[in-house]
Design a protein around this nucleic acid. Structure first.
Length: 1063
RNA sequence: GGGCGUAUAGCUCAGUCGGUUAGAGCGCAUCCCUGAUAAGGAUGAGGCCCCAGGUUCAAGUCCUGGUACGCCCA
């Protein structure tokens, strides 16, 4: 359809029924045919950038609904910001490297462990990994498109691409140049038979219950207050790994635990006070000598074995917070080569790392006692030796669960493996400062989970002894001179040949050697690859291949304004993004970060194949529609907390939100095409908003409040708040505005009352569609295509956020309409109580409510119409003696003024005669009550007055508001009620005989019941008007006619489509 | 073991600045309305606001401790 701004355009009529998933497919086709995403980027190109970074998923498996969650938020805010006048580029990405990929390929190939992989061939293995990681990209792409996530997949970055790897190398070189990339030891679970470290996930698979010796060993104290040769005292140390005693380096105590000397009369040992009984048993008494752990720091002791050399001072007491008094003696033997805690503690004291165990698990051959023995086998000789020298106090078998290799069941070693670290502890303060500048949603993550993590920051263990990853770009010669390489060009320069086409992965990069720039000896690459989190943390520049390529694009898009992932990424991507950029550029790469809770299955458990409770996203979207799923993710419950998703929740969204909205639109288009068509040109002739009926002004007021509120909520990433506003407005619109305005729409757009209603509803639907568009882009665009003005953009996603008309927001009117609706509710409740159906008109209703006297006539008329009563009066008009009052204290108001005396004043109000209080307040605005012998004035606002008529009325009351119905039905009222019944009878007949809404009919009636006959005669004009009858005749027609009979009303009615249809 | 979060009706969830009668939807029951609706409305049953202390005139709401569950880390 051509965009001729001067053309008026008849609106298509949207059918009442809609197949949402099918409609979404139409919309998707239109987006693709009309290149709507591309155009939205194109037309905003001159606008300021709002930079979004896509956290790359590993496409190593099928996408699940949890992927939809983050992707909804990744789509919603870019759409919103685009409508708000920003340019939001959206570059997709894939995380390609890493152990999960390797593990999956190992499984596929039937390989088990690094030896197998190397025999299979690293080149082929990595080729399989590359292929495996792309295998599910299609499934991700299909899901991404189906859910309406607009992101540029064609130019997606991939962490395995050479340009990406080169950017990562550049970053590592930059960090190396700052002196923050260092080689050190890392304690890892290690299988000596397989000669490999194990990942945490492998570790978890291999725990076995074993019986080990557990020994209590004496370490005689050699300095400090207990170092008395006359009265020797020993530290009593407990361990289940006697073989580590060979390299004992220190003994750790907890600084805040009390340690006591105990004796059995012959010797003295030091243990933690709470463990005296458990560790020593019967016959031991404390001597009364007590020390805080903190006092014992640096006391020296005689180490248990003198088998290995120490090149630095060692063997003294150190302090460590991780020491517990649950087991053992509260004094913990430290062997830093065999425990991560031990290493951290010993490091802090500058202690050396001594490791006599070789990679195959045997002690170095030259050692006395244990030389050449397998580490666990050596336990026996070591324990016997301790016993022989009188150092062993106790040896008892100890059953516990110990990690074993999941492949070969060899007991694992925690083992110091050479490893590369980034000294993030050196930039900890800078990271904390960057975090202080970052906006977290929800806010508590900033100082809570994430802030805690930063405050406990440890150095980043960067290297992995694996195959499929970004190779660590460090080349080393025999002299251990390290050369860090920042690009393939640089590598080519060093190697003296063109390497620009080199695959920078293993094994190819491993084949490149060059003369060490420092000594000229051959330098070869270290074998390690790097942690995949560094890959993805480098995406702000690496996605562009910067700084080697696209430097301008990178700089124009750095730092980012917005990232969003689930909560598990606090230690993952959220950290690596902040850390990498802070290391390289000195500041973080993002300003706002949205942190989502996890999606759970309907049973409240994690979705897993194993439990069979998986919801497959494509199936869900084909059943309920992507919009329903998107709405759920954005607006159901709180996105920050874990949520359960299931079909019921989605069905409810479809019914309550999407269909209610859609049906309102359908209603509008139906009447816009009926009774003289409506088109956009009529908007110009409609009365100005301030001249429209109160109902219209109320809707426009609510609309502008919602437009404003939704914009503000989305500005603070509060999708749930936006959703609540929208749900409430859709309900108001459909179930109050349209309901109360139906007659004006029936009347048609060309009537004065219709003109205002059509314009108001159009304006509301137009703005509503715009503000709902980021959340539910499909149905809104479908609606937009039907409703849009001739000069409006083709797609709602090419349109701008609506301007808020503050001048139309009328809070008084909102309150008055709220009162109106509460009174209608009360009236309906009273109707139900009375058993008199709403179709039966009543003569009078009495209302007692604060603010009723100021309620405009138009709103009173709404109440009267809705309740089908002829007259509405204030209860006070009935006269004091017919009405009972109850007066309750309004604590909220009283509390402000009376504070501690509030309960006394409240009590006084309750005790005072209600009628007198009400009379005082009504005449003077104040009432007096007596509190502790003192006169106290209370205002009208401080009292909640409830009025009740005494008798003869049906009453409903709540929170101080009362509605009373006069149930007397006069013969006139009865006939008016009958007329309503007959109208409904005819309408049913029209519907069942298949007439169109606007068809005119001829009608004949015959009544046996004289009252019915009188009603038909008396109300003939009204009935005929309501049912569009051109003729209204007593008797029977000639020829065919549709007939209905009612025994209840004693009437037969015949009708048929009139020959003349107009007028 | 540590950090963080969550706990409100049978279910899914709201509950603002602390205000005394804690709400909505779903489901159930009984009605009503219907010339847009796959709808809508009313009424009813259904609550140890996880537990125990504390602050306060007043606590679902704030504080402390605990329990259960979840996530992350050891």
């Amino acid at each position: 359809m051509a965009d001729d701004p001067t053309a008026s355009r008849a609106l298509p009529v949207l059918p009442a029924q809609i197949d949402l998933p099918a409609t979404e497919h139409q919309v998707l086709r239109r987006w693709s045919e009309q290149k709507v995403f591309e155009r939205s980027l194109e037309q905003s190109r001159a606008n300021p950038n709002w930079v979004f970074y896509e956290g790359p998923p590993t496409a190593n498996g099928q996408p699940g609904v949890h992927h939809v969650e983050a992707r909804v938020f990744k789509d919603l805010f870019p759409r919103f910001k685009t409508m708000r006048g920003y340019h939001v580029d959206r570059k997709a990405g894939w995380d390609c490297h890493g152990l999960p990929v390797e593990v999956a390929v190992e499984k596929e190939l039937g390989l088990s462990g690094k030896k197998d992989i190397e025999e299979f061939g690293v080149a082929e293995f990595n080729a399989r990994c590359r292929e495996a990681v792309l295998r599910n990209v299609d499934a991700f792409t299909a899901m991404t498109q189906r859910m309406g996530y607009w992101v540029n997949m064609d130019e997606a970055y991939r962490t395995m691409d050479p340009e990406y790897v080169e950017s990562v190398w550049w970053a590592l070189k930059t960090i190396w140049d700052k002196g923050l990339l260092v080689r050190d030891f890392r304690i890892s679970p290690y299988c000596p038979r397989c000669g490999t470290t194990l990942s945490d996930h492998e570790l978890a698979q291999g725990y076995e219950t074993v019986v080990d010796p557990s020994v209590y060993v004496r370490f005689p104290v050699t300095s400090g207050p207990l170092a008395d040769p006359e009265r020797p005292t020993s530290l009593l140390v407990w361990t289940t790994t006697p073989w580590t005693l060979v390299s004992n380096t220190a003994v750790a105590v907890h600084p805040d635990v009390t340690y006591v000397v105990a004796t059995d009369g012959t010797e003295r040992v030091l243990v933690a006070e709470p463990l005296v009984g458990k560790a020593l048993g019967e016959g031991w008494e404390p001597t009364g000598e007590r020390f805080e752990g903190g006092e014992m720091e640096r006391w020296t002791y005689q180490r248990p074995f003198e088998l290995v050399e120490f090149d630095a001072p060692a063997h003294f007491v150190v302090l460590a917070d991780y020491v517990t008094v649950e087991d053992g003696t509260g004094l913990v033997h430290q062997a830093p080569a065999f425990g991560a805690d031990d290493m951290a503690v010993c490091r802090a004291y500058g202690l050396p790392l001594v490791n006599p165990v070789r990679g195959d698990g045997t002690f170095e051959p030259g050692l006395d006692l244990v030389g050449g023995q397998f580490f666990k086998t050596a336990d026996a000789a070591l324990v016997a030796d301790l016993d022989g020298r009188g150092l062993l106090m106790r040896n008892q078998p100890y059953e516990h669960s110990y990690p074993h290799c999941w492949r070969c069941h060899t007991p694992l070693l925690y083992y110091a493996v050479p490893s590369w670290y980034i000294k993030t502890t050196a930039i900890k303060d800078e990271l904390l400062a960057q975090n202080a500048r970052t906006n977290w949603f929800p806010g508590n993550v900033k100082e809570g989970r994430y802030g805690e993590w930063l405050r406990n920051n440890i150095d980043w263990a960067l290297s992995r002894s694996r195959y499929w990853g970004t190779p660590l770009p460090v080349w080393t010669c025999a002299e251990e001179h390290h050369t860090v390489v920042g690009s393939l060009a640089e590598l080519g320069g060093l190697a003296g040949r063109d390497l620009s086409a080199l695959d920078p992965h293993r094994p190819y990069v491993d084949d490149v050697a060059f003369p060490c720039p420092q000594c000229g000896a051959e330098a070869r690459r270290v074998p390690e690859v790097i942690d995949v989190w560094f890959d993805s943390g480098a995406m702000p520049f690496a996605q562009w291949g910067a700084p080697h390529r696209n430097k301008e694009a990178f700089e124009a898009n750095f730092p980012g304004q917005y990232i969003c992932e689930a909560i598990d990424q606090t230690r993952g991507w959220f950290y690596s993004m902040m850390a990498v950029s802070t290391l390289v550029f000195g500041h973080s790469s993002y300003e706002n970060v949205v942190c989502l809770g996890h999606i759970l299955a309907e049973d409240g458990r994690k979705m897993s194949k194993h439990l069979g409770n998986i919801l497959e996203p494509m199936e869900v979207m084909e059943r309920h529609g992507a919009d329903a799923l998107r709405w759920f993710m954005a607006a159901s419950g709180s996105p920050w907390t874990p949520r359960r998703v299931g079909h019921e929740a989605l069905e409810e969204i479809v019914r309550k939100v999407l269909l209610t909205y859609y049906n309102t639109v359908s209603f509008f288009t139906l009447y816009a095409g009926t009774n003289g068509t409506w088109d956009h040109s009529r908007l110009a002739d409609a009365p100005a908003p301030e001249d429209r009926p109160l109902l219209d002004r109320w809707l426009l007021s609510e609309l502008n409040r919602v437009v404003k509120g939704v914009g503000e909520a989305l500005d603070r990433f509060d999708t749930a708040g936006a959703g609540r506003l929208l749900t409430a407005f859709v309900d108001d619109l459909s179930n109050w505005y349209v309901r109360r305005s139906r007659r004006r729409f029936w009347a048609g757009a060309q009537t004065p009352e219709g003109a205002s209603a059509f314009a108001t509803l159009f304006e509301a639907l137009e703005s509503l569609t715009l503000v709902m568009a980021p959340l539910v882009p499909f149905i809104t665009d479908h609606v937009w295509a039907a409703l849009r003005r001739p000069d409006a953009p083709e797609s709602v996603h090419l349109a701008s956020w609506p301007r808020v008309r503050e001048d139309l927001i009328d809070t008084d009117l909102s309150e008055q309409m709220a009162l109106t609706r509460r009174l209608v509710d009360l009236g309906r409740a009273a109707r139900v109580d009375s058993g008199v159906r709403t179709r039966q008109p009543l003569s009078r209703v009495l209302v007692g409510a604060a603010g009723f006297d100021r309620l405009p006539e138009q709103l009173r008329a709404q109440i009267a119409e809705e309740l089908n009563v002829q007259q509405l009066d204030p209860l006070s008009a009935v006269g004091g003696d017919l009405v009972d009052y109850t007066v309750k204290p309004n604590f909220r108001a009283l509390g402000k003024r009376f504070a501690k005396r509030t309960p006394l004043v409240a009590q006084a109000i309750g005790a005072a005669p209600a009628q007198a209080l009400v009379e005082q307040v009504r005449s003077t605005g104040w009432a007096h009550v007596e509190v502790e012998g003192e006169q106290v004035e209370v205002s009208a606002e401080e009292l909640l007055v409830t009025e009740q008529p005494r008798e003869g009325w049906t009453v409903a009351a709540e929170a101080g508001e009362t509605v009373a119905l006069d149930l007397e039905i006069t013969p006139e009222l009865q006939r008016a009620g009958l007329a309503r019944e007959l109208i409904r009878l005819v309408q049913d007949a029209r519907k069942s005989s298949g007439l169109e809404i606007s068809d005119r009919i001829d009608l004949w009636w015959s009544a046996e019941d004289p009252v019915t006959a009188q009603a038909l005669t008396e109300h003939a004009a009204t009935i005929a008007g309501e049912v569009l009858a051109r003729t209204f005749t007593e008797g029977a027609p000639e020829g065919e006619a549709h007939t209905v009979r009612s025994a209840e009303f004693g009437v037969a009615i015949r009708l048929r489509k009139s020959a003349e249809q107009e007028g």
